[in-house]
Design a protein around this nucleic acid. Sequence first.
DNA 1: GCCGATTTGTCCGTATGTATC
DNA 2: CGATACATACGGACAAATCGG
Lengths: 247, 247
Amino acid sequence: MPKAKFEGIYRSIKQKIEAQDFPYQSLLPAESELIAAYGCARNTLRRALAELTADGYLQPIQGKGVRVIWRPVGKTAFLIGVIESFQETAARNHLRTVTKVVQFEQVSADERLASQSGFMVGEPLWAIQRVRYLDGKALILDCNYFSQDMVPGLTADIAARSIYEYIEKVLHVRITTTKRKVTVERATTRDEELMDLNGYDSVVVVSSMTFDADGLLLEYTQSRHQPEYFCFQDTATRRRQIPAGEE
Amino acid sequence: MPKAKFEGIYRSIKQKIEAQDFPYQSLLPAESELIAAYGCARNTLRRALAELTADGYLQPIQGKGVRVIWRPVGKTAFLIGVIESFQETAARNHLRTVTKVVQFEQVSADERLASQSGFMVGEPLWAIQRVRYLDGKALILDCNYFSQDMVPGLTADIAARSIYEYIEKVLHVRITTTKRKVTVERATTRDEELMDLNGYDSVVVVSSMTFDADGLLLEYTQSRHQPEYFCFQDTATRRRQIPAGEE
DNA sequence: GCCGATTTGTCCGTATGTATC
DNA sequence: CGATACATACGGACAAATCGG
């Protein structure tokens, strides 16, 4: 049961689109009709539509209507706006996963790390490297830096299971915002040693900063992926006219 | 001069954050103060803040305030939520660009193309392949499919310059939404022939569907990038609690 | 632990502007 | 031109979370 009214409406309409009750390329019922159907105020409905638009389901056309631009995709069914993580892939395909901790140290942020991670210089951190295996193949090398202040009591044992579960379930810290950057780099000898690159000479590097519900930096991670198992999907909407120089 | 009031407020606050008048990790002045400062209604200010949050500048904390989570980045200064296109990179760095058309044909969508592009089977299309040179190096191979109905009168000559300029300036069609997928593929012999891969054995493939202001599918493109010159950046905000099974 | 002040979150109703047909 | 539909803006009300006394 959703707490917020707009969220219930969001889900209801999303579900109808996915069930193709509102088919691809058709126009949605007018705002006024939906308002009547859901018994809500205009702003409330519009908030639900705004999120569906941001998620790539809808496109509003002033003076005309709201077009459905979502279509069912094949069984590869990627998630929108989400980097499909190792665990998610594994869970969806019912594959066996193993995590091996190859580094577990306490360090403090030097100048270089601070500048690229957003931690303060000298801030005490956990430096952890883990290799992720899927179905026997080493596909991801995760290089994490966690704030010792915000993630106390970390052990190699926890790292071998799930650090996120520890953070959310044990420490009761909620992850809210993640900034990510995706690039491709030449594989290092360490990549080659630790991962099954299957002949690839490069890796996909996802660098991310994670903030908790207080907006404080919790983690900086470089996730190095074997290229075959990487996919990223998103939707971009041009909200404004190109303001010359920006965007 | 922005048309909408909320947009002016959005830009003003964004600029103050980037100038570090509102520093990284600090709390913004309270809504009530900003409302007084900008002389607007609460909803108007909140819309500006909502967009800055979506862009990864802010993180609101109920009962507490709004935290600034934007920091200046190095000179690589990537754009948020945008794949930095070839032309954008070139324009920012004042580099010379050349486009060479290597294919220009009329085709109709077969089963396979229709299923991955979203065009209807049999829909008449332009099939165009272009190599993009930056500073003498062939870095991108663009494979475009444009709807002939929606983009009439295309010629190889226009393709050699800018199809988008033609679409927007001549046909007066506005591009609004783009759905993208990023993967890495092994380079084909054609990639190797046409691009300067600098020893890389793989390419970054950005597949995208582009919709016009009416929500109609205009274009499907596979953009194959030399890995060195590729970067993608985005911000993900967890808006809801994990609804078990979804997201 | 409770209470009240502050701050953000959600929702409502209304008015006006603008694009499409 | 008028009718319809989305876009922006205003002001008010109450809920929920945080923090300090």
